[in-house]
């Protein structure tokens, strides 16, 4: 059995620029980091690796520079890494991405769990994790705040939902999206860094995955981004100070004044 942590390399800022024509994010010139939420998925994988001995494979789909993030995952403790990279994968929406990653999970075989962060901080869709589960026809456990048990054939989790917590038991294999409540990610180690520097990380493309161009990348993406833009900044509020009575009058005058301009 093994654990796959599906991760994403993202721009190191939430203030990323947008290419309005192509409807995509502009990544050039922005430092790339491991999606912060994925660090919790990795840590959860490593915890259960430490407990059960199941190796952890860090996996990502992305351009060649995403290799750097995989090396970071290895320096933190991932046993292996795998990069899915091909020109044909470019421009993928969450459906095509999930389909591509699911194909890799199938090809790897013997995978008990796929773990992801709850969402990526660039696209913020939170769709790719569930999409992988759908493509694999596996059960999915989203918003997992605690993984309380992983046994040979099932997993028990606490799912943090609005207003409460669901305790769910689910057969394996399954896909889990992990919240930051689940753990505190460990630091890289010196041995991990040395291992990461020397590791030959395999790259799988269209051919290795046995996929057709029409089912991946922009071509395989049913979603079309019609328009993407930065919302207009709202005007700033006004702050008034004074006695309650005086302030109430001011407010009433303003509201009435706006309704009935004289």
């Amino acid at each position: 059995m093994r654990i796959v942590v599906a991760m994403k390399q993202v721009p190191d800022t939430t203030d990323v620029r947008i290419d309005e024509e192509r409807g995509t994010l502009v990544r050039e010139g922005v430092p790339a980091i491991m999606n912060p939420f994925d660090a919790y998925a990795l840590e959860e994988g490593l915890r259960w690796r430490d407990a059960l001995g199941w190796p952890v494979i860090a996996l990502t789909m992305g351009p060649p520079q995403a290799m750097e993030m995989l090396r970071e995952a290895v320096s933190i403790g991932a046993d292996e890494a795998l990069l899915l990279s091909d020109r044909a994968f470019a421009g993928a929406d969450t459906w095509a991405t999930a389909h591509t990653i699911a194909s890799a999970v199938e090809k790897l075989g013997d995978v008990a769990m796929v773990l992801t962060g709850k969402q990526a901080i660039d696209g913020d869709t939170a769709q790719t994790g569930p999409g992988i589960a759908a493509a694999l026809d596996w059960p999915q456990l989203t918003f997992v705040g605690r993984v309380s048990e992983v046994a040979g054939d099932h997993v028990t989790v606490e799912r943090y939902v609005e207003g409460g917590c669901e305790v769910l038991r689910c057969p394996l294999p399954a896909l889990l999206t992990i919240l930051k409540d689940a753990n505190v990610p460990r630091m890289p180690s010196i041995r991990g860094k040395m291992k990461a520097r020397k590791m030959e990380i395999p790259v799988w493309g269209l051919e290795e995955l046995g996929l057709e161009e029409g089912e991946v990348g922009l071509e395989g993406s049913p979603t079309r981004v019609v328009r993407i833009r930065t919302p207009e900044m709202r005007g700033g509020g006004e702050i008034h100070e004074g006695e309650p009575e005086e302030l109430a009058r001011l407010l009433a005058d303003r509201l009435l004044g706006e309704r009935e301009p004289s």
Partner: peptide, 20 residues
Amino acid sequence: RVFAESDLFRIYIPEEHDGL
């Protein structure tokens, strides 16, 4: 404990004794 997990105590110890 974090230092230990990150191998910082291994730095100056010879390799034959589990160091770096």
